[in-house]
């Protein structure tokens, strides 16, 4: 495609198979789950619907063609991307963080994974984004707190600095290697590249 006249056709599109029971909409965000060797010489990425809050490197954006369950399509995460957003979260604005959440093919506001450049088609819910892996998140401990050396669940807060609100989303499996965290305390979690999981990196005393 080197002779193509638009960047779109010069993007490295990767073949994937939709392992979800639902169809991936055009420009929808999806979650890579691995690779599959369909036949010798033909390897595809296996993909499914996002199942976590935000993403790091595992989320891809589908091509302009919807991909039915079990079918194959093309996705990418390079360059500036057109992606489907959830209009219920409002109209995207430059500088916002939008990313996947569990149970949706659409990008959600106040979620990590992509840097928002702006909406391109509010009727279709299309926006221009660039990948920006979510490597930290803020939240609060649950009522039971989170003891040192254990993993637990964090309630995720997001929003303007200092005015963050409860997203209603939680992050399970957060590891605390530091001091015991009390109930309903602010915490900052960091992405552990070795274990590909979250751990507390700061907490409210």
């Amino acid at each position: 495609m080197s002779t193509a006249y638009t960047p779109f056709d010069n993007q490295p599109w990767t073949e994937f198979v939709n392992n979800n029971a639902a169809s991936v909409p055009a420009y929808g965000v999806l979650r890579a789950t691995g690779v599959s060797v369909i036949e010798p010489g033909r390897v595809v990425v296996t993909a499914d619907m996002p199942q976590t809050f935000g993403c790091q490197a595992q989320c891809l954006i589908n091509s302009p063609v919807a991909v039915a369950a079990g079918q194959m399509g093309y996705a990418t995460r390079t360059g500036v991307l057109v992606a489907l957003y959830d209009a219920a979260d409002g109209t995207p604005a430059f500088g916002q963080a939008w990313g996947p959440r569990a149970g949706s093919w659409k990008l959600k506001r106040n979620t990590g994974g992509f840097f928002m450049l702006g909406a391109t088609n509010t009727t279709l819910g299309l926006a221009l984004v660039t990948p920006l892996p979510m490597l930290t998140l803020r939240g609060k401990t649950l009522s039971g707190g989170l003891a040192k050396g254990t993993t637990g669940t964090i309630t995720i807060y997001a929003g303007p600095l200092g005015s963050e609100t409860d997203t209603g989303q939680t992050m399970a499996g957060v590891y605390n290697r530091y001091a015991n965290a009390g109930s309903n305390k602010w915490v900052t979690c960091g992405w552990n590249f070795e274990s590909q999981g979250w751990e507390l990196i700061d907490l409210e005393c």
Binding site: W13, E15, S63, V65, V67, M72, G73, Y74
Partner: peptide, 8 residues
Amino acid sequence: NEAWLGFA
């Protein structure tokens, strides 16, 4: 609705 980028 065929994936015309490569007709996978």
